[in-house]
C-alpha cells in the first residue's frame, strides 16, 4: 500500500471513529443524529474507496437520506433534543466498559493468533459492483432472502398503518373505546 492510500484510509477511519464517539457522548439528540449522519457518509466514502460505489450511494440514500431524516424529524417534532442527564438503565456504563474490553481482547487475540488464510482470497472481476451484477445476484441467486426481506418490510408497513388508524365513530356517533396506551 502506498503512503497516500494509508494516509487516506487513516483519515477516513479517524473521522468514522471520532463521529462515533461524538454520537454517544453528545447530550443533545440533534448533534448525536448529525454525528451519525457524518458517520454514515464517511463509511460510504470508504465503500467508494474499496471500489463499491453502488453500495456507497445506496447507503447514503437509505441511511443518511431517509432514515436519519426521519429520526431528526421525530426528535424535532417531539422537542426531545435534550437528553436526560440521569441514565435510566443502572450499571450500563460498567457493563459497556466490560464488553468493550472483551471486544478489544478478542480483536487483539484474533490479530495475534490468526495464521495464514486457509483459502486464498478470490480475485473479483472488475464489474462485481455494477448495478447489473448486483441486480442479477439479488433476483437470481438470492431471490428467496430478497423476497423474505420484502415480506418483513411489508408486514412492518402494514403494522405502522394499523397503529395510526383513526377509530371510526359508530352509528350513534360515539367513539369506540381506545385500547389502553402502553405506559412506559
Amino acid at each position: 500500500m502506498s503512503l497516500g492510500l494509508i494516509f487516506m484510509y487513516s483519515a477516513l477511519a479517524l473521522v468514522v471513529v471520532v463521529s462515533g464517539i461524538g454520537l454517544i457522548t453528545s447530550r443533545n439528540a440533534i448533534y448525536a443524529a448529525l454525528f451519525l449522519v457524518l458517520n454514515f457518509v464517511t463509511v460510504a466514502l470508504l465503500y467508494i474507496a474499496l471500489g463499491a460505489p453502488f453500495i456507497a450511494l445506496a447507503q447514503v440514500t437509505v441511511y443518511a437520506g431517509s432514515i436519519m431524516v426521519l429520526f431528526l424529524f421525530v426528535i424535532m417534532l417531539l422537542g426531545a433534543e435534550q437528553l436526560p442527564i440521569a441514565e435510566p438503565l443502572r450499571g450500563q456504563r460498567v457493563l459497556g466498559i466490560l464488553l468493550a474490553v472483551a471486544f478489544l481482547a478478542e480483536m487483539v487475540l484474533f490479530v495475534l493468533l490468526r495464521g495464514a488464510p486457509t483459502v486464498a482470497g478470490q480475485a473479483v472481476s472488475p464489474d462485481f459492483s455494477t448495478p447489473t451484477t448486483i441486480g442479477m445476484l439479488l433476483f437470481e441467486r438470492y431471490l428467496l432472502p430478497f423476497e423474505m426481506t420484502a415480506g418483513v418490510l411489508l408486514a412492518a408497513t402494514v403494522g405502522a398503518i394499523f397503529m395510526t388508524r383513526q377509530p371510526r365513530p359508530d352509528r350513534k356517533g360515539a367513539l369506540p373505546a381506545m385500547p389502553e396506551e402502553s405506559k412506559e
Partner: peptide, 23 residues
C-alpha cells in the same frame, strides 16, 4: 454507471440544511 443513484443520494441529503435551519 450509477449516475442516477448519485442523483437520488444527493437529493435525499439536500433536505438536511432546510430542516436544521428551521430547528
Amino acid at each position: 454507471n450509477i449516475a442516477t443513484l448519485y442523483l437520488m443520494a444527493v437529493t435525499s441529503i439536500s433536505v438536511y440544511g432546510i430542516t436544521l435551519a428551521g430547528w
